[in-house]
């Protein structure tokens, strides 16, 4: 009896001391204070878990199949990523497939029947929401995983009709990754396309362009396209707000992306608008001020 009482007393004392120490120093340890419970429990491992959750979300989108390797250790069909011509790994006729250059393997055949390996996607809001727990975990456990943040925001606002939640995810992502221009770009797209809030979209696109400037060499085709589009949409947002002079500036910057012989329809549209604005009073005034 005595040892039990002593143990409880010692544990209580340790608990009270720990609480008091935490209370006394919590304002002097801002880093520790800012960490959430998951961070305290898992430390840096939480980023790895977060990335695993992102992979899991992708697997959920494909009916439980992982992108790199399916259950049988074979890559998921990339052909079927095009959606129209569905390429299936499994033998649809149900014949026992043979090993490469070897005898038919009945174990592999049973595995293929047990484990679904067809390529498919979640369809409709009812199914697509199933990814959300993993996307939400991924972006919270690893706040620097830009793909996870962008994907979560995309599904929320683009597919599930939760525009405000999508904006929240991006704003939080931008706070955690101040130099990630892609998040600003995506946020700008939401303000422009979904909210039609041109004041905000103009500000966010301009911010995105500012952050991306100087990093053009590192951009892939997709990023490069987004960078060009950010210029156009910033210009268009400003134009809609009646800020013709500044819009003209961005239109001209955008035109610089198109080569001299480029036949892109957008180029013609911008050129026409530039001519129109330049001849207007405000456009001309803006350039006089700049010069």
């Amino acid at each position: 009896m005595m040892p039990a009482v002593l143990l409880i007393a010692l544990l209580s004392l340790a608990g009270v001391t720990s609480f008091k120490v935490h209370e006394a120093f919590k304002y002097e340890l801002p880093e520790a204070q800012s960490q959430d419970i998951m961070n305290r429990l898992m430390g840096s491992a939480q980023e790895m878990v977060g990335d695993a959750m992102f992979t899991k979300a992708d697997a959920y989108f494909h009916g439980g199949l992982y992108k790199q390797k399916d259950f049988l250790g074979e890559p998921r069909s990339e052909k079927a990523e095009g959606h129209e011509e569905e390429a299936h790994h499994h033998d649809e006729e149900g014949h026992a497939p043979s090993e490469e250059g070897g005898a038919p393997n009945w174990i592999r055949w049973i595995d293929r029947q047990i484990q679904a390996t067809e390529h498919r996607h979640l369809e409709g809001v009812d199914e697509e929401v199933e990814m959300l727990p993993f996307l939400a975990l991924a972006s919270r456990l690893n706040p620097n995983n830009l793909s996870a943040i962008a994907t979560e925001a995309y599904w929320l606002e683009g597919r599930l009709g939760r525009v405000d939640e999508g904006i929240e995810v991006l704003v939080r992502g931008i706070r955690m990754n101040p130099e990630a221009w892609q998040l600003d770009y995506q946020l700008g797209m939401i303000y422009y396309m979904r909210k039609e809030d041109y004041a905000r979209s103009a500000a966010v696109f301009k911010e995105s362009i500012r952050k991306a400037r100087g990093r053009e060499r590192d951009m892939g085709v997709q990023d490069s396209g987004a960078f060009e589009l950010a210029h156009y949409l910033a210009a268009d947002s400003l134009d809609r707000l009646g800020l013709s002079g500044e819009a003209l500036e961005f239109y001209r910057q955008c035109l610089a992306f198109f080569g001299p012989g480029s036949e892109v329809p957008l180029k013609g549209k911008i050129e026409a608008r530039v001519r129109e604005l330049a001849s207007s009073g405000e456009g001309a005034r803006y350039f006089r001020e700049v010069e």
Binding site: G63, G64, I107, I110, D111, I114, A116
Partner: peptide, 19 residues
């Protein structure tokens, strides 16, 4: 092969039943 007895993927992701 204990993986023969594991149909969780089909249950979780609503795949068709096996024959």
């Amino acid at each position: 092969h204990f993986e023969f007895f594991d149909l969780r993927q089909r249950v979780i992701h609503d795949w068709d039943p096996v024959s």
